[in-house]
């Protein structure tokens, strides 16, 4: 047992494990999401493993592209998302992790903008607006952690004895809004939505087909795992409480997703730069001591 723990502490082992487990976790979260959404609407819903069937199927499709740079950007999107995960589990500088994560999203946007497709273009523009909307709050979150623990390193968070949620509840609320944007939940699902066929078709993802769409989906799984991993980090001292917190956030996001309709991009930026941003700032002032 002790040997096992020692082995787990090795950064290489940890990153390899994370790289394998994260998409699996993300896929299960996605499956749960679809299942519970269906139940909320009184439907039976797809099987839990449906996201995996989807990506396996997508791998076997014909690789349609518009030109080569598009594929490059898809790869960059995935690779940078993976780097984010690796850096997070090896306890690197959180702010750098965040910036790399931001570039990963930017790579997706650039891929969407590199092709001459109006729908993809509109989706990409909205995606940048999304990044613009949530980036400051994420940075403030990291700064809040720095203020509390005195270090930017991810490992410092795990070493501290007090759960983050005690000292930064307001930042946590702001972070939930960010999660809603990142996971494309209503009312923030402006850039690509399963429900917006008439408006933007599939937004940023529009021009990816077959295996390349599969790559973006896997990256999205990573993103899901990353987001919920961070939620877990808010209450890392007690696994049970962390799990509870996660469930609450998850169900809350689903309810909001089903209860709200999609709103405009301008509204999103205005909202994010007022309510969650001031929440985050208020929390920071309190942390300043």
């Amino acid at each position: 047992m002790e040997n096992m723990m020692k082995w787990l502490n090795d950064p290489v082992v940890r990153s390899v494990l994370a790289l394998i487990l994260a998409p699996v976790l993300g896929g299960i979260i996605m499956g749960l999401d679809r299942k519970i959404t269906a139940r909320m609407q009184g439907r039976m819903g797809p099987p839990l493993m449906q996201p995996f069937y989807d990506i396996i199927k997508l791998m076997g499709k014909e690789p349609f592209v518009l030109h080569r740079p598009q594929i490059l950007y898809t790869m960059l999107h995935l690779v940078f998302m993976m780097i984010t995960v690796v850096m997070l589990v090896t306890g690197q500088d959180l702010l750098m992790v965040l910036l790399i994560h931001a570039f990963s999203s930017i790579a997706l946007v650039l891929g969407g903008m590199s092709v001459r497709s109006p729908y993809s273009w509109i989706g990409s523009q909205r995606k940048i607006m999304q990044i613009l909307a949530y980036e400051p709050i994420l940075i403030l979150l990291i700064l809040g952690i720095r203020l509390r623990d005195g270090s930017f390193l991810g490992s410092a968070v795990l070493e501290s004895q007090e759960p983050l949620i005690y000292s930064m509840p307001l930042l946590f609320l702001a972070f939930v809004c960010v999660l809603a944007i990142e996971f494309g939940k209503s009312p923030f699902d402006v850039s690509s939505s399963h429900h917006a066929h008439q408006e933007i078709v599939r937004g940023v993802y529009q021009e990816y087909a077959g295996p390349f769409y599969c790559l973006t989906e896997i990256a999205h799984f990573y993103e899901l795992a990353l987001g919920f991993g961070l939620v877990m980090a808010f209450w890392h001292t007690n696994i049970l409480c962390g799990f509870l917190l996660e469930t609450v956030v998850f169900l809350f996001l689903l309810v909001v997703d089903n209860a709200f309709s999609r709103l405009t991009t301008g509204w999103m930026v205005r909202y994010m730069w007022t309510v969650p941003l001031s929440l985050a700032l208020a929390n920071l002032i309190w942390l300043w001591r």
């Binding site: 039976m44 797809p46 729908y119 066929h197 078709v201 021009e207």
Partner: peptide, 22 residues
């Protein structure tokens, strides 16, 4: 796609783009 018949239980997703469709 409604609760009554629920095509999604077979994994059917009604997607807008032919590039993603089977």
């Amino acid at each position: 796609l409604t609760p009554m018949y629920d095509a999604e239980r077979f994994g059917v997703v009604h997607i807008g783009s032919p590039k993603h469709a089977d």
